[in-house]
Amino acid sequence: MRRFTWLVNLTLALTLMVIALGAYTRLTDAGLGCPDWPGCYGRLTPPVKDVHIEAAQARFPDAQIDPFKARNEMMHRYIAGLLGLCVLAVFILAQRLRRARGLSAALLALVMFQAALGMWTVTMNLMPVVVVAHLFGGFALLSMLVLLRVELGRDPAGPADPVEPRLTRLLPLAWLGLAVLLAQIALGGWTSANYAAAVCYQLPFCEGGWHAQFSLRAAFSLPLGHETYEYGVLPYEARMSIHVLHRLGALVATAVLAGLVLLCMRRALSARLRGLAAAVGVLLVLQVTLGLINVVGQVPLFNAVAHNVTAACLLAALVLLVRQLHVQSGQALHARGRARPGAAYGVAVQGPMKLR
């Protein structure tokens, strides 16, 4: 069991690394650093030496070979491949130990789909819809691994959390927060995939007159039929609209999640639930700060990577918070169910005693 837990921890670390490398690859415009898949210019290693660059140029005469971008792209693929092997090992051990077999099977299916999305990202030349789906897959993989790690660390014989009936009222708000955060992550991915992050540099929304050019139709138009989507294909109007929507979404997500955190901190008695709420609050503050730095600093590379990784961690923490709210709400409903038959039984017994 210790080896299984260690393997899950390693897989979690690799997932965070892959998310960070994926963001770094995208932000350094290295998504097409290797025009083929799974190799790079017909090799398993990027062309760095002159002889390899000449061979790659002969095989791909129309390509502009950049060893730096090719290294970034292949490093991402190497670590992603190692992550896939670790998820496969997690699946095999889970079946043997009969622990979390359904969740491990879902993880394996997701990582296989992620591999296909990685291939389509290259073969479809960074089509924005595929890029956003690939981003979502990485975030979902991290959240599912965090759930698996928590399940493995759970001690059924340990002390139970206090029953808190008031927390059942927070579940709708928690689900709303999760939906809003997912929508905001989608907007962030759409902004990045369409190269709209560097369109607006003024606060709170964009340069003067942006509202006259704002268009929802342009923001959500699907750019299809292009040979390549590298560096973006949408006009300024569409990119600016996407960017403004991302900022508006940030305001909504911050308000909803901040309200959820404050209510959890005020009403919760469980140290576990309060800790999860505090983690969501800290990550939310960090994410907003990194977003502001992106605007003021004109999207600094490592800050933008941190913004991406923090979003993934925020989603995972919120998923754990929703799970914990469900657990404690279920305990409250179970306690009510046990109390009602007992009360009815007491009334039935006391009746005959009075007649005596």
Rank of each mutant, 00 (worst) to 15 (best):
G209A: 05
G209H: 12
H211E: 05
Q213V: 05
F214M: 12
S215E: 11
S215W: 05
R217S: 08
R217I: 14
A218M: 11
A218L: 11
A219H: 00
S221Y: 07
S221P: 13
L222P: 15
L222R: 09
P223C: 04
P223L: 05
L224Q: 10
L224N: 09
G225I: 00
H226K: 13
E227V: 03
E230C: 03
E230I: 04
E230L: 08
G232C: 05
G232A: 14
V233E: 08
V233Y: 05
L234M: 14
E237A: 08
E237G: 15
E237M: 06
A238N: 07
A238S: 07
R239C: 01
R239D: 01
S241K: 01
S241H: 00
H243Q: 10
H243T: 02
H243W: 11
V244I: 04
L245I: 13
L245S: 06
H246W: 13
R247A: 05
G249W: 15
A250Y: 04
V252K: 07
V252Y: 11
V252A: 05
A253I: 06
T254K: 14
A255I: 03
A255E: 02
A255V: 06
V256D: 00
V256H: 01
L257M: 06
L257G: 00
A258F: 05
A258H: 08
A258C: 14
G259C: 12
L260Q: 00
V261T: 15
V261N: 01
V261H: 01
C264M: 09
R266C: 01
R267G: 10
A268N: 02
L269T: 14
S270G: 08
A271L: 11
R272S: 05
R272C: 11
R272G: 14
R272E: 06
R272V: 12
R274H: 10
R274C: 13
R274M: 08
G275N: 15
G275W: 15
L276F: 08
A277E: 06
A278C: 12
A278F: 04
A278R: 12
A279M: 03
V280H: 02
G281Y: 10
G281Q: 10
